Simulated assay, not measured.
Amino acid sequence: MPVTSRGGGSAVDAAEPRRQPPNTQPGGKASAFCQILQSKRHSISPTSVGLPARGPSPGPRVTGLRQEDVAGLTNRSVATYARIESGASKPTPEYLRTLALLLRFKESEYVLASLELFGTEPAPLDPRAGLCVPSVWERAVDGQTEMAYVNDRCFNLAYWNRAFVSMFPSGHTPKNIMEWMCLSDEARDGVLLQWETQWAPRVFPQFHAALVAHPNDPVLASLRTRILADRRARRFFDYGDNTYIHPDGDRRPFLHPQRGTGWVTIVAAGPLSSPGARYTTLLFDES
């Protein structure tokens, strides 16, 4: 017979609800992070991480790494790792990165896990992430009739279409679009109308943001040196509005070599598999 509380309900009803483990979804279902963790553990062969091959043994065949393998390789107890994989406890951001590197998370899986666990997007696992843009983006750019291009995280141009080439009076696309916007007289005194008031105050903060994200990148460091050596550019590098970090939706004056004076509306997006890269379309309207 259930014990009755003073309020008339049973003691079970009056008790505080059981807390849900931190890494589980409503109903007790394993979180996305736990599912990724288990899937990745089962997909990694012991020999690929320096462990001896597992010989025949009685009982069910074990594929991939065991929990004790992961625990040992990451200097944790088996109990600690088991609690994390089951959703009973949460890893620190540092241990999440350790697990992601060992178990070869994709960048997208790592971002999802960090957002789920901590609500923040982490720095890429691979320091080279954002330097290689998948070739499928070349087809996407070629199919665009407006001026369009894709640059990597250092602003080096990866792909562009014919319409984009037509915006350069010289007929040649630059290697680095940020360098062209900041330092080229073709841009500053020609194509990018009202450069000092409409373009430079919005371009240099984007470069600042890239430097903050990748302070040791040699391409960005070299460009910074050249900007600081250019008196006209340095003024904006030192005193620009660093709260402005993307151009999506902007409308700016523009001189097209073939179509004349007008305005471009900038539409910016990012290849999700290449952090920091950007896909930009310039919608030109004649004045």
Rank of each mutant, 00 (worst) to 15 (best):
G59L: 02
P124C: 14
S45T: 06
A100F: 11
W180E: 07
V203R: 00
R128A: 15
V12S: 15
Q38H: 06
Q198W: 00
H246R: 09
L112C: 14
P134E: 15
A15I: 05
T280W: 05
T120G: 10
L73K: 14
K175H: 11
F284Q: 02
L211W: 00
T74Y: 11
R162S: 13
S43F: 00
T120I: 15
S77K: 09
R232A: 12
A209R: 09
M181K: 03
P257A: 08
D285F: 08
T261W: 00
E16Y: 06
M181C: 05
F254D: 03
H246Y: 09
H208N: 00
L183M: 06
S273N: 09
L112F: 12
Q25V: 07
P91E: 06
W199Y: 00
L103M: 13
R139V: 14
P247S: 12
Y239S: 12
W137N: 08
S5F: 09
A269M: 09
R226G: 01
W199H: 03
S274E: 02
D142H: 14
F207K: 00
L101S: 12
T92G: 15
L223H: 01
A229N: 12
R224Q: 11
G260W: 01
R19Q: 13
D142L: 15
P60N: 06
S45W: 04
D238K: 05
G240W: 04
T281M: 14
V150W: 05
W180R: 10
V49M: 03
A14K: 11
R76C: 13
V165H: 07
V141W: 09
R153P: 07
D13W: 13
P17L: 10
L282G: 03
G190H: 02
G119H: 14
F164M: 15
L37Y: 07
G87L: 10
K175V: 12
T92N: 08
G64I: 07
R83I: 06
A53C: 03
L96Q: 08
E68T: 06
A200N: 04
R235K: 13
R19E: 11
T261C: 04
T197A: 01
G130K: 06
L193R: 09
R66V: 13
T261E: 12
L157N: 13
L112Y: 10
E85T: 05
M1N: 11
F284H: 06
A229P: 03
Q20E: 15
R61L: 08
G87M: 13
R278I: 10
S45I: 00
P60E: 07
L73N: 12
A53S: 12
P26N: 04
D217W: 00
L125P: 12
A213T: 00
N75G: 04
L117F: 10
L103I: 14
S39G: 03
V219N: 00
K90W: 05
C154S: 14
G190Q: 02
P275F: 07
D250N: 10
G262W: 09
G143F: 14
G119A: 13
C154R: 15
A113H: 07
P60F: 06
F155S: 15
E186F: 07
P271A: 06
L115Y: 14
V133G: 09
L157A: 13
D248K: 01
A187Q: 04
